[in-house]
Simulated scan of single mutants.
Amino acid sequence: MRNLIVLVVPVLVAACSDTGSKSATPPSHAELIAHETELLKLTLTSEAQRRLGIETVRVGGGSAQRVRPVAGEIVVPPMTANGVPTNSLSNLQQIGSQQAVADGEVARTEAQARLARIALNRAEALVREEAGSVRARDEAAAALAAANAVADAARQQRRLLGPAVGAMGNQTRLWVRASVFASDLAGLSRSAQTMVRPLGGEGVSRAAQPVQAPPSANGAAGTVDVYYAFDNCDRAFRVGQRVSVDLPLEGQSSGLSVPSSAILRDIYGGEWVYRRTGKDTFVRQRIEVASEKDGRALLSRGLQAGAEVVTVGAAELFGTEFGAAH
Rank of each mutant, 00 (worst) to 15 (best):
A207F: 02
A208R: 02
Q209S: 00
Q209D: 08
P210N: 01
P214C: 02
S216C: 01
A217R: 12
A217F: 13
A221G: 02
G222R: 05
T223G: 06
T223F: 14
V224E: 10
V224G: 06
V224N: 06
V226Q: 12
Y228G: 04
Y228T: 08
A229V: 10
F230R: 00
N232F: 05
N232L: 08
C233A: 11
C233W: 08
D234I: 06
R235P: 02
F237R: 07
F237H: 07
R238Y: 04
V239Q: 11
Q241E: 15
Q241V: 02
R242F: 07
V243L: 08
V243Y: 10
V245M: 09
D246H: 07
L247M: 14
L249C: 04
Q252R: 14
S253P: 00
S254Q: 12
G255T: 07
G255Y: 07
L256P: 10
S257H: 04
S257A: 15
S257W: 13
S261Y: 10
A262E: 01
I263S: 06
D266S: 03
D266H: 09
I267R: 12
I267V: 07
I267A: 12
I267F: 11
Y268E: 09
G269T: 03
G270N: 03
E271S: 15
Y274P: 11
Y274G: 05
R275W: 02
R276L: 05
R276E: 07
G278H: 01
G278K: 06
K279E: 13
D280I: 02
D280A: 05
D280S: 12
T281I: 01
R284G: 01
Q285T: 09
R286G: 11
I287S: 01
V289H: 01
V289R: 03
S291W: 12
S291K: 02
E292A: 14
D294M: 07
G295F: 15
G295D: 13
A297H: 08
L298T: 02
L299V: 04
L299P: 10
L299E: 06
G302L: 03
G302I: 02
L303P: 06
L303M: 01
Q304I: 00
Q304R: 10
A305N: 09
A305M: 06
G306Y: 03
G306C: 06
A307K: 04
A307V: 00
E308Q: 11
E308C: 03
E308I: 02
V309D: 04
V312D: 10
E316W: 00
E316M: 08
L317W: 15
G319N: 15
T320F: 14
T320Y: 15
T320S: 10
E321Y: 13
F322G: 00
F322K: 09
